[in-house]
Simulated scan of single mutants.
Amino acid sequence: MISWKNHFLYQIDYQHWANDKLFESCDMLSDEARKRDAGLFFKSIHGTANHLLVTNLLWFARLRGDHVDLRPDQQVHDDWRELKLALKQTVRQTQHWLQAQPHEFFEGELRYRIASGVEHSNWVHDVLTHFVTHYAHHRGQIAGIATQLGAPIPEMDYIGYRRDMQDSLANLRQAANG
């Protein structure tokens, strides 16, 4: 049986992989196309990717018991390359921090305050489930708009990630034996 910790370490690694697949597709678009209002809640591809970064920063701070003063729609990076790099780094930082946590952390309760000052309490595994499904939700929105704008369809489903990881392990084994 897989532990909550291992489950979420796989899930966070998947987020990194899926973001890379999405960025490869979105890189085919012009900066103007990525920033054009496409009717999304956070307006554009760029705005929605920026929201993913802000969301990661907010939840990562809450998990650590810290506070960051960010709004969900706050623009952090105007440059696409800087935004992608910041999102990659933040996802990896989250992954490494979670790796260092004891198994019990994932079964514990998280108390945090939202921007309005209201205190909430949720199980850590529920917060992390929200975190990863929130990413998938917004990545799907971005992929749909990017595809409509002419970008290639990014194949970023979880089973594709697992296959890629299995293939990578098989290649490493073959290289070590050959």
Rank of each mutant, 00 (worst) to 15 (best):
S3W: 07
S3V: 01
S3H: 11
W4A: 14
K5M: 06
K5C: 02
F8W: 08
F8V: 10
F8P: 14
L9N: 11
L9V: 05
L9I: 06
Q11C: 09
D13R: 14
Y14S: 15
W17Q: 09
N19W: 02
K21N: 09
K21G: 10
L22A: 06
F23K: 11
C26D: 04
M28T: 07
M28K: 11
L29F: 02
S30A: 00
S30L: 05
A33D: 15
A33I: 00
R34M: 00
R34D: 03
K35L: 00
G39H: 05
L40K: 00
F42D: 00
K43Y: 02
K43P: 01
H46S: 01
H46N: 09
H46W: 04
G47I: 01
T48A: 06
A49S: 06
N50G: 01
H51Q: 01
H51R: 04
L52H: 03
V54G: 03
T55H: 08
T55M: 05
N56P: 07
L57A: 12
L57F: 03
L58W: 12
L58M: 14
L58V: 15
W59H: 10
W59R: 13
F60W: 03
A61S: 09
A61M: 04
R62W: 03
L63C: 00
R64N: 04
G65M: 03
D66G: 01
D66T: 02
D66L: 11
L70P: 00
R71C: 03
P72V: 05
D73W: 06
D73Q: 02
Q74F: 00
Q74T: 11
Q75S: 13
V76R: 12
V76I: 15
H77W: 01
D79S: 02
E82V: 07
E82Y: 05
E82W: 04
K84Q: 09
A86Q: 12
A86T: 10
L87Q: 15
L87C: 12
L87R: 15
Q89C: 03
T90P: 02
Q93S: 15
Q95E: 14
W97L: 06
L98T: 11
L98P: 14
A100F: 04
E104K: 08
E104P: 11
F106N: 14
E107W: 01
G108N: 10
G108A: 15
E109Q: 13
R113T: 09
R113P: 10
V118C: 01
V118Q: 15
V118I: 12
V118G: 12
V118F: 11
H120T: 05
S121I: 04
N122Q: 10
N122H: 12
V124F: 11
V124M: 02
V124P: 14
V124C: 05
H125F: 09
V127W: 08
V127Y: 11
V127A: 12
L128Y: 06
T129W: 00
H130F: 02
F131V: 11
V132R: 10
H134T: 03
A136W: 02
A136I: 09
H137E: 04
H137K: 10
R139N: 07
G140C: 10
G140L: 01
G140F: 05
I142R: 01
G144L: 04
G144E: 10
I145E: 00
A146S: 13
L149H: 09
G150K: 08
I153R: 13
E155V: 13
M156V: 07
D157W: 08
Y158H: 14
G160A: 08
D164M: 09
Q166F: 06
Q166D: 15
N171A: 12
A175R: 13
G178K: 14
G178F: 06
